[in-house]
Each structure stands twice: as C-alpha cells, then as structure tokens.
Write a protein that binds this DNA or RNA. Structure first.
Length: 365
DNA sequence: AAAGCGGGGTG
DNA sequence: CACCCAGCTTT
C-alpha cells in the first residue's frame, strides 16, 4: 500500500518537470500575484485567463494600488471574463487586507480561507504555491483524475463524492513538495487527463489508473447535477439625447451584478419590435415627446451557461429625456461609454457597425 | 444540499 | 447541441 501511494506522486512529478506549462504566475512567490491568478482562473480556462492576468497586474501591480482603485476600474479590467462577483470580492478583499492586515495577505490556508472570494480550493492553492504549506488543492481537474484513477463512482459534484476524493487527495498528497505536487496534478488534468478523449497513452499513471485498465475512462467522473437553462428576452433602448445617453448599473441577485447597461425592457416571452414599442416601459423610458427610432437590431442570441438571452437593440433619438430617465438613470457622454464595464452582449453591439453609424456618430438627415 | 453566477472552447 | 473550465456565495 505504501509503495502504491509513493508511486503516484513520483510518477506524476517525474512527468511534470519536462511537461510543465510555462505560466507567468509560476515565475513568482509573490502572494498577491498568485492570489490574483487564482481568482481569475476560477471556472476559467488558463488560455482565457492569461491575457486578463497580464492586464490586471499591469493595471494593479500591488495590493495597495488595487485597494485604492475605484470599483469601476476593476470591473472594467474584468469586462468579458464573467462571474463578476469575483471582481467585486477581489476589490473588497484588497481593501480589507490593506486596512486590517497592513497590506499583508494571510500566509496560511486557514487565514486565507476567511477572506471573501477565497474558498477551499483557492486557499489551498495560494497556501501551497506561495507559502509551501502542505495542503491539497482540489479543483475540477483533481476531482476528475482521482475519480478515474481510483474508480470513484459517487458523483463528484455532491457531498459524498467530494468527501471521498478529499480523503484520497490527502492520502496521496506529497508533503515534501506541496507546490509542485498541486501544480503537477492540475497540469496533468489540463493536458492529459482531459474530460473528453483523454490522452491515456501518454499518461504517466496509466498503469495504476482504474478507469484506464477497466475501460471506464468515458464514464468517469460521474456528475449528478444538471443546470437548467432559462430563456429571457432583453430589449435595450439606446437613447440619443444630443451627445448624451442614459445608463444604469445592474443590481445584485441577477446576472451581470454591477455592470452597466442601457435602459432595459425585459420580457419572459419573445416580443416583436412593434410590441416592445407599445409597452408601458417603452413609454416610461422614451417619454411623450418627439421620439425617433433610428435603428432596430436583429435579434441577438447570447448564451450563458444557465440562461439563454434573446435581445434586440433599439436606437432612439429623443427631444428631451423622460422623467424615468432623469430619475433612475445616469446621463453620460456617448463617447464615454467605453469607460464603463458592460456585459459582452452590449460590448459587442457597441463595437459593431450599426452602433458606430446610428449611435456613436449619429445620423445625418 | 442545491441553486445561481459568464463566457468561451471543444467534441 | 452538451459539457466543462485552477469555484465561491447564498439560500
């Protein structure tokens, strides 16, 4: 048994040294950089996170610079990455650490775990990478690898399966090289033990892998939870009031918390453009004065993992802003829109030809 | 324990 | 189309 336990780590780390990915957050022991990288990489592929990481530490090279920045600047840096609560929490925690801990991040798993936005995995990752604390970091890769290697059929997205994997991960963990072991097993998951069509022939631990030996690779790991997808219909009103438009910031308990958007009419079933323009919301937003609709976009389909959004953009010139716009929305220069963090859906429309022609530059009549 | 939260890559 | 990604927080 002991022999078997040692073999896992040895084979893994022997594979890792010549095959490790060269990633910028691996060149440092700076806890701040490692923390930022781990938050960015939550539910995010390394390839997608790389550019964001480089831009983020360029914009906020120290925890103090992050703490002192306005939230809007942090969100703008996060634009397009998704799970925007991460950006809010990273900012909250930076301020907290600067105020309460003199700018020094906790140097233990237990201390890190108390911070907002840092859960079990992230605390273990930072503690092992930055401080060499011997604690197993268990992410999606690790669940998959142990479920396959040890033939765990308990769903890894439920309590029992997680508990079993945690026990195995603790037993297999290499106490002598915490950082290397955690990096190595995640690299194996990211490069070899892939969710679909894993490269088993190139795997350093295929000889001890239950799933490989029993032909169960495609059936493991087991997942129980299904995310159900909801349809929503978004109709955005891009007001043109001279060189100004109106925007608002999204509330919590919904998608895109804290991001900026145009006045929105939401429906739970599809509406034709004419129907949108007959709603009371339309009247409230556009007012009773002279209104000219200069552009109506095609329906844009925007897919989130848990919602399907069907949306349309209306560009509307108004003579004077409605009471609702004055009361509930912020007047901004159209040319300043790029300063605000917006959902990808809006970012894309603003970057497209119709917006430039009908909204940003205006219409010649 | 389960649901909610983005966006993009991949087969 | 479904599934998944260096998960966390709230309910």
């Amino acid at each position: 048994m002991f022999f078997c336990l040692m073999k896992f780590s040895n084979a893994l780390i022997e594979w890792y040294h010549p095959n490790k990915r060269d990633l910028p957050w691996r060149d440092t022991k700076n806890p701040y950089f490692i923390w930022i990288s781990e938050i960015i990489l939550q539910q995010t592929r390394v390839q997608q996170g790389l550019g964001y990481y480089m831009r983020f530490i360029e914009a906020f090279p120290t925890i103090e610079s992050l703490a002192n920045a306005p939230l809007e600047k942090v969100l703008k840096c996060w634009q397009g990455l998704g799970y925007y609560t991460r950006a809010r929490n990273i900012h909250l925690t930076a301020k907290f650490v600067v105020d309460e801990y003199n700018g020094v991040l906790p140097n233990t798993y237990a201390g890190l775990l108390k911070l907002r936005g840092i859960g079990d995995y992230t605390a273990a990752a930072i503690a092992s990478f930055a401080f060499d604390e011997p604690v197993a970091a268990i992410d999606g890769n690790v669940y998959r690898i142990y479920a396959r290697v040890f033939g765990i059929y308990a769903p890894i997205d439920k309590g029992v399966g997680k508990k079993i994997v945690r026990e195995i991960a603790t037993a297999e963990f290499d106490l002598k090289q915490p950082a290397t072991f955690n990096q190595a097993i995640m690299d194996l998951g990211g490069q070899v033990c892939l969710p679909k069509n894993p490269l088993c022939e190139s795997c350093p631990i295929k000889a001890i892998c239950y799933a490989f030996k029993c032909g169960e690779v495609a059936s493991l790991p087991v997942k129980a939870l299904k995310t159900k997808v909801r349809d929503r219909y978004f109709y955005y009103i891009l007001i043109r009031y001279g060189i100004f438009t109106y925007i608002s910031q999204r509330k919590d308990k919904d998608i895109w918390h804290s991001l900026f958007e145009f006045p929105l009419i939401e429906s739970y079933h599809a509406l034709q453009p004419e129907e949108v323009m007959l709603t009371s919301d339309w009247v409230d937003i556009c007012g009773n004065g002279r209104v000219e609709v200069t552009y109506i976009s095609d329906e844009q389909k925007h897919l989130l993992s848990h919602q399907h959004l069907f949306s349309r953009f209306f560009i509307v010139e108004v003579e004077k802003p409605s009471y609702l716009l004055l009361r509930d929305y912020t007047k901004v220069l159209i040319n300043d829109m790029e300063e605000f963090s917006t959902p990808r859906l809006i970012e894309r429309f603003l970057a497209a030809e119709p917006a430039a022609k009908y909204f940003i530059k205006g219409v010649d009549f």
